[in-house]
Simulated scan of single mutants.
Amino acid sequence: MSETTTQTYRVGVTDDDDVILHWAAITDTGHRRDNNQDAYLAEFPLFVVADGMGGHAGGEIASQSTIARLQEIVDGGTVATATIEKALELAVADIASHPDTTDEGTGTTLTGVFFDAAMDEPRWVSLNIGDSRVYLLRDERLVQVTTDHSVVQELISSGRLSPEEADGHPYSNVITRAVGASELTPPDYLGIEVLDGDRFVICSDGLTKELTDYGIQHFLREESDPAKAVDAMLAAALENGGRDNVTLIIVKVERTGGAVSADDAETAKISTIDESSSTPE
């Protein structure tokens, strides 16, 4: 099994309020792929997953080029929506000019969160292009924060397809936005309050192909430690087939004081799990 990376980071908000972040990340080729076209970056304040696509080495080029450009803005200490979009523009140019990019379909998804301390009250900002996902476990309920940019999601949103029909749909792998397209569309963003006890799961679809949302929620509840949780989810995804590369990051939030209460939080709940309707898988 691939090696899990872990880290803890403390952010001072006020004299009596710190945010302590614990995170773990892992990526695995899976059972059916010859190479790993996923890449990730888990370094404060940015936590993102990129799932590459394209023939030959195209997917690896796209995901790694994107992560490399984002690493530059982390190293420069200027992670914000404007710098992220500039980095993505540079990544698109890198992908297009790479000598091994031969497939016009070369590109990558990108999803994740970054910690934004530029305002008086810190917040998370999620970002998304494609069908990799960010989930949030808050008050023991799992929420899908991001909305997939995919043909299937468009059909669901228009009422022409039910969520239950989506998994087996012939266009289930067709995405409508990617980094690497000739004209970059900026990510979708969502601001999220920083609450004590929150846990984020950032993952490629190699995880969600093998684990339902209920399964993800189950492992988060079973394992409060991010490292143990990522290991358990990866093991389950591989046991369930491992049909694709699998990459995931879990970020756990502790806040020592001055936190917004869960009752006051206004995070958009795009797809909340109804626990009474199913059991974990």
Rank of each mutant, 00 (worst) to 15 (best):
A235I: 02
A237K: 10
Y214A: 14
E239N: 15
R221H: 13
L220V: 04
V201T: 11
M233I: 08
G241A: 06
G242L: 03
V246P: 06
A237H: 03
L234V: 11
R221Y: 04
L234T: 12
L220R: 08
R243W: 08
A227F: 01
T247K: 09
P226M: 08
A235L: 11
D213N: 15
A232Q: 07
G241M: 05
F219K: 10
T247E: 00
D244V: 01
T212M: 10
K209F: 05
D244F: 01
N245W: 04
D231S: 13
I202S: 05
F219A: 07
N240D: 09
L211Q: 05
V230Y: 09
D213V: 05
L248R: 06
A227I: 00
E239D: 15
L248E: 05
A232K: 12
E222I: 09
L248D: 11
I249Q: 08
S224P: 14
P226E: 00
N245G: 04
L211R: 03
F200D: 10
G242T: 04
G215S: 08
V246Q: 07
G242A: 03
H218K: 01
G215D: 06
G206V: 05
G241D: 04
K228R: 15
N240Y: 12
Y214Q: 12
H218P: 01
S204V: 07
L211V: 03
A227V: 04
I249Y: 06
A229D: 05
K209A: 10
S204Q: 09
S204W: 01
T212H: 04
I216W: 07
I249H: 00
C203P: 11
Y214V: 02
T247C: 09
E239S: 14
D205M: 02
D231E: 15
H218F: 13
I249R: 08
A236N: 09
E239H: 15
T212P: 08
A229S: 13
G215W: 00
L220W: 07
V201G: 07
R243Y: 13
E222K: 14
L207H: 03
E223K: 15
K228Q: 15
C203G: 06
A237M: 01
N240F: 12
Y214P: 02
N240S: 12
V201A: 03
D225P: 04
F200Q: 07
D205H: 07
A232E: 10
F219L: 13
R243Q: 12
F219Q: 13
A237S: 15
P226C: 06
A235V: 10
L211K: 01
A227M: 05
F200W: 12
L234D: 01
L220Y: 01
A227P: 08
M233C: 05
V246D: 06
M233V: 07
G215T: 00
L207G: 04
D225K: 09
A232L: 05
I249V: 11
K228Y: 11
A227N: 06
A237Y: 05
G215K: 00
I202V: 11
E223N: 15
